[in-house]
Design a protein around this nucleic acid. Sequence first.
DNA 1: TAATTTTATTTGTCTTACAATTTGATTTAT
DNA 2: ATAAATCAAATTGTAAGACAAATAAAATTA
Lengths: 239, 239
Amino acid sequence: MQKAAGQLDVKSVKRDTLSSKVIDQIIHLLVSGQLKPGDKLPTEMDLQDMFQVSRPVLREAISSLETIGVVRRKTREGTFFTNKIWSKPYEIMLSLSSGNIRAIAETRMSQELGLVSLAAEKISDNDLHQLWENIGLMERQEGDYREFDKDFHRIIAYSASNSITEGIIDPLLNMFDDMFAGIPTENKDKRFTIEQHKQIYYALEKRDPIEAHLCMYRHLDHARNRLLESVQDEKNRKG
Amino acid sequence: MQKAAGQLDVKSVKRDTLSSKVIDQIIHLLVSGQLKPGDKLPTEMDLQDMFQVSRPVLREAISSLETIGVVRRKTREGTFFTNKIWSKPYEIMLSLSSGNIRAIAETRMSQELGLVSLAAEKISDNDLHQLWENIGLMERQEGDYREFDKDFHRIIAYSASNSITEGIIDPLLNMFDDMFAGIPTENKDKRFTIEQHKQIYYALEKRDPIEAHLCMYRHLDHARNRLLESVQDEKNRKG
DNA sequence: TAATTTTATTTGTCTTACAATTTGATTTAT
DNA sequence: ATAAATCAAATTGTAAGACAAATAAAATTA
């Protein structure tokens, strides 16, 4: 088999600590069907007995699973498997790309292009209605419209109803938006953005995954180019 | 602002434990530019001093960051920020969808459709060569060709060179493949799959994101339908 | 029956101690 | 002078025991 990046880097092989073994065993409760999303896990004391480890080791494992979004804990109430991965884990992951404009832009393109294809198949009439309303609100907005812009993309991403990967959208939109901080937007940008949003809306209305992808690709390609150009201008001004 | 799923679910708001605060502060070392991917973190003892917490709390935080893929640790050597997110974190996240055939199939579609669009822009001549070789190997394979099938998709996904999300592909391909376990593949399936792989290859060779998406969409739509039908047949046989 | 108080459950944080791994320094042998 | 063996040190890995905090549930009181 050809070498894959994930297999080449020895350092990425998971280290065999007790805590990581506990994680695998807890995950196995899901994979084997013994427990399912939403279910309550045994108490820390019970898990300690089951896995025969110390409490700090057990808590490291559970804290890790909470950070990655697979469990949630509440004092006195207990520990539960979640139903979906929320945004914080992705925010943490994406922090590795902090300041890396190209990486953030490309991650955004990759995720949104995939999600819009799925959204075209699954989008509800209510989501379509919300998209149309959002376009109207953005048109009428006098000042900063970027929050409406983000909402447009957010609605589409969540309409794909993907419980594992939808949580990536908010951190991505926020990081992308943060990179425009201090860079003025022009009115022609707004009109063009609205025009592109409408085209995406029409493609989604037709529930056409191919056309939705095409329109979204054009939109995000444009947004990426504007971002890279703005940052280049900023560097030229400061240079 | 319209309600977004991530904001509606109060339980997804991150709890304010000391360990989670330490995570935020460590992440801030990256976001603020004080440290960057690949850099070594201060020792556990130093971090304990910096953040004024106990060692178990500190270790819970670091274990969490290791599980989510943002740091790696080695006894005696120290703790380092990673350069990319590897597969294990995604495997853990995806375990929430264990047994959920539709969710896995849709996640795979979403991710691969996004990654192929990016790959069309970025793919190297070497990757193209590897894809063509893979098609040849798959054609000549007498028995089980599924490993070659996965390799084809793996090469494309990694050729997009996205350090944050590329790690999702291996667990996805494996989970998707596991669902075919016990379901026999027919020779006509193989010929059709090779045909579709070739079309994806040609689109990538042209470096055409729109066409690459279209071909990949057709391929994955077909694979998803075959999976759902096979599982339905299996249920009918057992029912 | 509703409000208040008490109890119990479970997670959250901490201190102290020792173990394990492995890198780097030192000593010894050739 | 160099290689091999041994030792010391640095840092992470694991554990026991204790107490705190949050809060759900039970018991008591009005």
